[in-house]
Design a protein around this nucleic acid. Structure first.
Lengths: 159, 159
DNA sequence: TTACAAATTGATAATTTTTATCATTTAATT
DNA sequence: AATTAAATGATAAAAATTATCAATTTGTAA
């Protein structure tokens, strides 16, 4: 934890940004909730618990900054809100997500399963891949059995 | 074209919805621009050219309806706008997209390349897949050579 | 330490996209 | 022709994000 905060501090200062108290509070909230995919509002509320004086705009600015530096990733599961996730230290790609259409939970696949497909894309489409987004929509193991007609969930749900 | 309009009319009426002139105009715009990925605003403006009396809310309502019936798909490439694409008559899955970080163009891969991976997800994660979203972010063949430092494009760009 | 310039913040206004409301119009049915 | 439900258009409202700007904080240099 402290280790990672320090590392982020360095990443910031290497681009001449400071790790202000507000930014640090935001980073810590993100680290403490690494499993979740928090929206800006979520982050704001959690940060506010500890540092009530922080403003919403600052949280947005911090998330944007961290995203610019590729310290976090922006995600969009189509519910109208941008979500943020810590970018694994080692991973240079976006990992894959399992989005449950029943309960809304998002699980992760941290391995990159797209290697072969990406090669094919680069060759067949002459497309230089920088990153990817892969999300499966369906029913998670927790909700299995609770859903009668999965097809019904497809419709307008989620982009 | 006429064939497809008629087919959509039937899909609507089978759910007791009518193909009103406004809905038909919207459907035709979507069909005429099938290669593009239009936002609601885009559709609205194109429909307005032909039928100036149509309201924005009606366009939104129509897109939502078509999406509910899985006649079109909602897409989100992270630019803050929901986009719509005609759903291929045969495809029961979302097809894949190539999103160019340089020019913003979205190309399509209509085949489903995820079969093997989906089997693995279902087995390893006990996740019942209903649909998927796969988008590659990178440089398209048109922009190849025009981009010096692709890594620079990664940052905050797109969710 | 004090002074200064630049970076950052908080409050809030403004924007943007989408949804809700509601009176009016249209369409189908009796 | 009368009646009911569906659909529409105009517009208000909501939700998320971005922009503005004065005030504060920070790091640096005298």
């Amino acid at each position: 934890m402290e280790e990672r905060v320090k590392q982020i501090k360095q990443q910031l200062s290497s681009h001449s940004y400071k790790l202000t108290p507000q930014r640090e509070a935001t980073v810590r909230v993100l680290l403490e909730n690494e499993q979740d995919h928090l929206s800006a509002e979520d982050v704001y509320l959690l940060v506010k618990d500890k540092s009530p004086e922080i403003g919403l705009a600052t949280v947005y600015r911090t998330l944007e900054l961290l995203s610019d530096l590729s310290i976090i990733h922006k995600l969009n599961f189509g519910d109208g809100v941008t979500r943020y996730e810590f970018r694994a230290a080692d991973a240079d790609h976006h990992h894959h997500h399992l989005y449950c259409l029943h309960c809304g939970t998002v699980d992760e696949i941290t391995d990159d399963w797209l290697g072969a497909i990406e090669k094919r894309v680069e060759k067949e489409f002459d497309f230089q891949i920088i990153d990817h987004r892969l999300t499966f929509h369906g029913i998670c193991y927790r909700c299995k059995g609770q859903v009668k007609d999965p097809k019904k969930l497809v419709g307008s749900k989620v982009t």
